[in-house]
Nucleic acid binder design. Structure first.
Lengths: 167, 167
DNA sequence: GGATTTGTTCAAGTTTTTTTGAACAGAGGG
DNA sequence: CCCTCTGTTCAAAAAAACTTGAACAAATCC
């Protein structure tokens, strides 16, 4: 007979911890981030003490590789910071829990780069559209490209407001 | 000898159309939507006349299945509407190009459901936390769960504002 | 400076997601 | 009515994304 607990649940996590981890796994999927990121952040969020990479590997039953890469991404997003925990060779991590910081990091890392690259692509598109010989067609292209520009302008306007509201 | 054009580029798309389609393929990926959705919306966006399912299949070189499912998703999101085009058994589609509508559909279909399911999960979490016997632990859980609630409250506050700004 | 521990990297394996295509349902025409 | 055409469905194939684990680098200890 198998273990009474499904293999996706670690023996090392209490029921509430498991629930919170699942909550975040769902949460980060909406943001297009992988499961392991949700697991790691979720466990840190519901742990009263900072955790080391090895803690995460053991409690979540994930590989060292996943834990390492997940932590890197979370650090880049500003969602996790290194805790001051002397007396140990290991690095310990704790979650950033201010919404402002989390949203800010996500915008900086995941949204802005796309808005920026979009801007340069639009410039190229405008050049291509100008090559069209048919005036009617050219007018149509220009109309649509202007629409695209107005969308992106709005996007760039909204982000700071969003961050301010969440501050 | 092979066709001189890469197989990812259709003979039927002009250079600018191909550029715009690629632009939207990138765009929808940020939103966690599949490539075909970006292709379909992108082509509709840069076409001056409504297109039928078969037009999409031929010009984008995708399967009927993809086109059908992609159109369904786009209709659900309110990103595409059926055009009035008599004199033909086929249905023709045109893109919704008002940012407000696009954002509204995305929020309604992709964001709200998660906020709603999160709300009920949080309720469950609160119940679980109450079962803890250690008062210190219980206090910690409650603190974090409150934090979670405040995040979601902010989320629900922000969405209408966002929609208003983009209107 | 060698041994040990911590953490990173990345090719290969696994899982998840997306796309395909063939079978099918339904509408319309003749 | 039967035949043709449009569009949907869904199981299987393909592609994309994620995870693993073993090799490696770097830091620390003694």
């Amino acid at each position: 007979m198998d273990s009474p607990v499904s293999k996706t649940q670690s023996e090392n996590l209490s029921f509430i911890q498991q629930q919170v981890v699942d909550f975040f796994v769902d949460g980060v999927r909406v943001l297009g981030l992988p499961r392991s990121i949700g697991e790691i952040y979720g466990l840190l969020f519901i742990s009263s003490e900072p955790l080391s990479l090895d803690d995460l590997v053991q409690k979540l039953d994930i590989s060292k590789g996943s834990a390492s890469q997940g932590l890197r991404t979370l650090k880049t997003l500003g969602a996790v910071r290194e805790a001051e925990k002397i007396n140990d060779r290991r690095t310990y991590y704790e979650p950033a829990i201010e919404l402002k910081r989390l949203v800010g990091g996500f915008i900086r890392e995941q949204i802005r780069p796309h808005l920026d690259s979009g801007k340069s692509k639009l410039q190229q598109l405008n050049e291509t559209a100008a090559l069209s010989n048919d005036p009617t067609e050219r007018a149509f292209f220009n109309e649509r490209l202007e629409r695209l520009e107005s969308w992106m302008k709005r996007g760039r306007q909204v982000l700071p407001i969003l961050q301010k509201i969440l501050g």
